[in-house]
């Protein structure tokens, strides 16, 4: 199966076409954020403060990379388990987030938000962190540097491989267990 190539920011029409199980590749800018960064973003929204990046059409990658060795833009950078962001992510989808990318299953609330707002959830291969880093050509901390590996990073990605786990229509790639 050939991959569907997507360039960020993502558009509503592109997202509507995606089906659970589709292979995709991502190019452009995506944002690395995980646990504490999400809490901080929600706190910022509660205060009416701006977010560190534009959410509309954005892709958030749940990753806390290893530090870049000399000569590389980033260290190993595989996905972390996504359900931990379920407490925060529906609100981000409501504000225009197009896709989140991580690994593992998500809550019913998150899946409902995907359908309601037309978002998708992508999966990257958990355990393939060194290989995946080859698709990240630049990385820059743009917020919360004190969080170290949990800081928000702007990542430039080139054909980053992923699979559509949940689509915007209720589709789910995971077999029932």
């Amino acid at each position: 199966m050939s991959a569907i190539h997507l360039t960020t920011p993502l558009h509503y029409e592109d997202l509507q076409k995606l089906k659970a199980g589709d292979r995709v590749t991502l190019s452009g800018i995506i944002f690395a954020a995980r646990d504490v960064a999400h809490r901080r973003m929600i706190e910022a929204l509660d205060r009416g403060a701006p977010l560190p990046f534009e959410l509309d059409g954005a892709v958030i990658y749940y990753v806390g990379p290893t530090p870049p060795p000399p000569g590389l833009p980033i260290g190993s950078a595989g996905p972390t388990t996504s359900y931990r962001m379920d407490a925060y992510a529906p609100r981000l989808y409501a504000l225009g987030l197009a896709a989140s990318m991580g690994k593992g299953k998500r809550s019913a609330e998150l899946r409902a938000a995907l359908q309601k707002y037309g978002g998708v959830y992508l999966g990257a291969t958990g355990g393939a962190a060194a290989l995946l880093a080859r698709h990240i050509t630049a990385a820059e901390v743009i917020a919360y540097p004190e969080l170290g590996p949990e800081a928000i990073r702007r990542l430039t990605v080139d054909k980053f491989p992923a699979i559509v786990i949940y689509d915007a229509h209720g589709g789910d790639v995971f077999p029932p267990i």
Binding site: L72, G75, S76, A128, A130
Partner: peptide
């Protein structure tokens, strides 16, 4: 396909000295 990626990742980490996983 996933298993092939994991084996390729192990080869690549070994060759480059990158950690196998970002979660060290």
């Amino acid at each position: 396909e996933i298993l092939r990626q994991l084996l390729a990742n192990a080869d690549y980490a070994e060759a480059t000295g990158l950690p196998l996983c970002q979660d060290t």
